[in-house]
Design a protein around this nucleic acid. Structure first.
Lengths: 207, 207
DNA sequence: ACAGCATGTGAACCATTATTCATAATATAT
DNA sequence: ATATATTATGAATAATGGTTCACATGCTGT
């Protein structure tokens, strides 16, 4: 499986990753337009020309970064939903995994947000579509879990798509707060709140 | 109060609004960097130079637009929270008002989102702070309502800040979907779902 | 009707920054 | 050790797009 690569090829891949790592941080903090290729090059300790040996152009670099990021997150989140247990437990695990993942990789999380959280101003022909496709995998897995939970009468009988939307909205709101103002509260508190609000009643009396 | 303005001055204000309207749509669809001053000028049917008679520079134009937008929304949302009734009713009204408002003003809503929904890549010195300050007013009003509802034992005793975060996350997720994929479901469905998820239990059995 | 002032114009200017490419450095093979 | 292929360099180029300003147009009041 793991094809034996030449030293050259391994070095090349390492350099590629170094460039992406430098870009990651800059794009996550300043966005696409305000990040200059020269800046990425400097931080990665390469000349600008070198970046073009790895990526067609700035957009291709960004695209590669986003898609890598999305795939990593998708893999981890989908995994959390596949561990054995009841649907309730799967969802709990999803919430915890998402919180842990985002806290551990803040710059990455920002990029993931920028791409998944609705109004990303990035009609960068195609990227939106590809990134969305990856995100849809997560949403699809989530929907399946809800659907099964409902069938087994473990969860309230509501439109699974809506439940997915709701859970994502809730977790994203808390995680965004956690990432931008990390002192406010911990990942555990956030996960707990999500579960409480999403799974338990809030209102004590009917209106 | 309403000072009698000269025809000249009225015309001038109208032109200013026309420029902002043209900019609104472009910024909402393509974002700050991808929108050119020449483009705004063309759409507003003015020469580029004219824009500079009204706004110091591109950033000032954007800033004015964002702050106007934020203030409008803040006013309307805060009003919904001030109508008489129980805290539960106030929150219901807030959710409905927000949905109606966003559906009625989609480009405006996008800008509002871009600015309030966390990861907006706009460290445009100061703007972030000012916009945030306006948004905080809404959050503050909301928090007060929760606080009162809790005190009167109408709402579950949870950290009001968390409840605010949760409600905002939920409404934003649904509204974003509504704005980006308007065919999926209506404003009423969205408002209903928000209330159901936020106020009623979802999980039928304890885990 | 005319002077004077406010407002609008858009070609020219300039700064920024993505991209290229001739050259240098370095690794690999013979 | 030398030739050859691969990879890195960064000054030069070109395109984009924000901003300016000398001038034109058209109100307003006398």
């Amino acid at each position: 499986m793991a094809a034996k690569l030449t030293r050259r090829e391994r070095e090349r891949q390492r350099h590629r990753r170094e460039i992406l790592a430098a870009a990651q941080d800059l794009f996550a903090r300043k966005g696409f337009d305000k990040t200059a290729m020269a800046e990425i090059a400097e931080r990665a300790e390469f000349a600008v020309g070198t970046l073009y040996k790895f990526f067609e152009d700035k957009e291709a670099l960004y695209r590669a970064l986003i898609l890598d990021t999305m795939r990593d997150f998708e893999r981890e989140l989908s995994a959390a939903l596949k561990t054995p247990g009841t649907e309730s437990e799967k969802l709990d695990r999803y919430i915890e995994a998402k919180a842990a993942l985002f806290v551990r990789h803040i710059p990455t999380a920002r990029l993931y947000f920028a791409q998944t959280a609705g109004t990303a101003f990035l009609p960068m022909a195609g990227l939106d579509r590809d990134a969305r496709a990856i995100y849809e995998k997560v949403l699809g897995s989530l929907e399946t879990v809800f659907r099964n939970g409902i069938r087994k009468k473990l969860l309230a009988n509501m439109d699974p798509k809506m439940l997915v939307l709701g859970l994502e909205g809730l977790t994203n709101a808390f995680l965004d707060e956690l990432i931008e103002r990390p002192d406010d509260f911990s990942a555990e508190t956030m996960a707990g709140m999500t579960k409480t609000i999403f799974f338990e009643r809030i209102r004590l009396k009917a209106k």
